[in-house]
Design a protein around this nucleic acid. Sequence first.
RNA 1: GCUGGUGUAGCUUAGUUGGUAAAGCACGUGAUUCGUAAUCACGGGACCAAGGGUUCGAAUCCCUUCACCAGCUCCA
Length: 633
Amino acid sequence: MKIKLRDQVREYKEGTSVYEIAASISEGLARMAICGKVDGKLADLNLKLDHDCEVQIITSKDPEAKMVMRHTTAHVLAQAVMSIYPNAKLSIGPATDDGFYYDFEFKTPINNDDLAKIEAEMKKIIKANFPITREVVTRQEALERAKKENQPYKIELIDAIDKNETVTIYHQGDFEDVCRGPHLRSTGMIKAFKLTKLAGAYWRGDEKNKMLTRIYGVVFDKASEMEEYFKMLEEAEKRDHRKLGKELDLFFLSDYAPGMPFFMPKGQTIINTLIDFWREEHKKAGYVEITTPIALNRKLWEMSGHWDHYKKNMYTFKVESDTFAVKPMNCPGGMLFYKERIHSYKEFPLRVAELGKVHRHEASGTLHGLFRVRCFTQDDAHIFMTPDQIESEIANIIHLVDRVYSVFGLEYHLELSTMPAKHIGTIKEWEHAETCLKNALKHIGKDYVINEGDGAFYGPKIDIHIKDAIGRTWQCGTIQLDMQLPKRFGLEYVDKDGSRKEPIMLHRVIFGSVERFFGIITEHFAGAFPLWLAPVQAIVMNVSEKSEEYAKKVAKKLEDAGIKTELDTRGEKIGYKIRSAQMQKIPYMFIVGEKEADEGTVSIRKRGNVELGGLQLKDVIKQMKDEIDKKVR
RNA sequence: GCUGGUGUAGCUUAGUUGGUAAAGCACGUGAUUCGUAAUCACGGGACCAAGGGUUCGAAUCCCUUCACCAGCUCCA
């Protein structure tokens, strides 16, 4: 709720704390109010204000409240660490999207047992319910205190503050820490927290700096919320595509090729189905498809700018007296395709797709299942057009994205990534490109958020972030406006008036990496792929040897109908076969015994324990075909 | 790449203070012919990630390398 001090609380004396004001307005509110927003900025309620401020009281229900709670808990962590390890050095302790952390430098490394000790100490601090108070001091004063306490990282932080600025220091018990705030009013307001992990992190995020020890934690309003959080983590663990990939025989990784996945028959079947679907949609959307070579001469990479920017991540090799590089992206090959002949404006927009296998030497520590690999297939396309086609073409791409993602039941949101620190081209070119993308987004009427400085080195981009079944988001698609490559490669087209002009080029992907997308949907569906994607759509199993011949007949008919079918005639009990099919997450189980053989019917059991008996095989096939065509989940 | 951790049969794991490997699942064989999430018995399978060292003796202790895991940095 917002209070305008000037209007509503005139009777208060200048300098009354906002908390006191909030408390007097409503006692219930006072219990909930944990901090305030002053002139749009978060501030502590202990802050004394003058009557002209507009104050927003943040209750525990507001999104900002979570950040304040996390932040305060980080400071309780710091207090606990300092009381157990008086020689530890403090750095910073911010709130994050799902919790908080604090970076320390310890004399001797700590381990998970120490974490439990720290947690116990934090509980003591919370129980003691120390009031948290805020003190404003001069920069000089703060610096002297940090020096006295022998806190080098704090000294560095305060030193960076402008000379005339004041510094706020928060006190709780005998602990004090420089911080912008705001914090909770007392340590006792923290209800449910847990320290989750220990990790190394560079001071100020720079790998040239010293590595500090980072302690992570989570904090919630209620114990039940914390339980839910850990349940979600458990669920995510169950869905881990690395685990499912093994259990369902989808793919594997070998020490002989780190970061380069091997796809097994079932995984390959899913990839093929994804690609078939992709081709179908792209054909409908007016794309043509090409293939460019996997390795190209270094000179081409010098021309494209990749050599300067990314040569350390490229796999290179010598051939006679020339150096070649395995392609880390498909664009330069696409440029050569364009340059192969003269183009007219009449061909535009010219949509050239390529399922290009690219290799990038990613740092060893970054590899992760199918999510971060050294070799993957981009579902790339380069689109050449005139400047006035940009908006409508971006709309076309978003429309295609819509179609493709909706089939998987994936929602998405858009982000606009702007000029990064490392970039080529002039500021003017960047401004122009960013304006083009913004206009296109405006034209489509879709909401988007801006991701400052996250663009590609050659141009700004619209990133498409999908949301999976358990609420995690993944950046998959991206649309990038490239004003560099057409110039560097001297691309031209003949315009209406016969003059030669430089075309506009968009790069775009929908899946991003086919392999990574496969990993994401594996987790999204928890391995229970919808019928159209399932590598085995039906399994036929006989109850006993007496029905083996009939089971074979049924399987043959399913296969003839184009259904991916397996046959299980092992000499096992039917319960055993069902269990194994269930664990393989096969959508349709055909269970046939003497009864079905006599009647010429089938019994099916759908994944999810739906049992149906006495069905005609042709009806079931028709039903399955309809389900596949509709691609419903 | 950096910090920390891990590496034992195809998979998941046990292995006490150093005394040269154990189980379940899977696999093979035999018996069983069974009606909706595990039939029984027997059997094969591991130079304990690789290389080096300490020791009478190493899966176990030390070093190097590789891979994986968590995080950091990075991600055209």
